[in-house]
Amino acid sequence: MTAATTSVTTTAPPPGPISRPVASGPAWLARDCWTEATRHLIATVRNPDLLVFATIQPIMFVVLFVYVFGGAIVVPGGSYVQFVVPGIFAQTVLFGSAFTGIGIAEDMSKGFIDRLRSLPMYPSAVLIGRTLSDLVRNIFTFLIMLAVGFAVGFRLEGGVVDAAVASLLLLGFAYAFSWVQALLGLSVKSVEAANSAGFVWMFPMTFVSSAFVATGSMPGWLQAVADVNPFTIVTNAVRALYNGQDPGADLWYSIAWAAGITVVFAALAARRFASRSRG
């Protein structure tokens, strides 16, 4: 580590016998983030149940929509598998972001966040490390879902580059929502509350969208809501890319949404985390 080390000057009396400079600089920030991320990754590898349950539900959705509802739903373009599987991908990674809020609420309820806040580490590394480890977990879930998609007949019709862009877009969107969940997790008082607060708005957000049906089939007022839903925009962009079509402006809108949400909610969550006014 070649990070710069700054010592703190105070106007107070000479410090006690131990002179301990506070390490700072981007290399220490990165090291703190990495340390925190590995804490969660070790735990995930050691308790894979959570990962298993996180994939069972989307697999059931794939089966349900492709084989149960699929025959009755008519979508533009013809193939319902090619239509719905990208939508379920988007829903899966978005739901995956909920682990961020639940995990933070759990750390808070057990007093672990207080322990971390009493250490000379970078406070922001607690949230960055957590969201990065959840991103890794989401990548893993996404790869499983990709395999499930292939098993039910989903194909990448737009080539490898388009598919890669679509996948990065999905993960970036989920990462942005990890910060929304982080803020929720910091704001609620219990793990149960984090669980409900994390999911209650994601159900309408993912179902009142183009993920499962074309929005044109909805009543007018609902269609208006669905069409401005960022989840619709992202789903449309990745669906187009996976199917070899031009995503058009949806691609740029999606990127803007992901970036905007990340910036705004990371700032809010960081401020909430560092706040020393609450009990």
Binding site: P13, R20, S118, P120
Partner: peptide, 14 residues
């Protein structure tokens, strides 16, 4: 240790 907890929290935490 002579360091103000309000103004230099990280130095205190060390």
């Amino acid at each position: 240790d002579g360091i103000d907890v309000a103004t230099h929290p990280r130095a205190v935490r060390a």
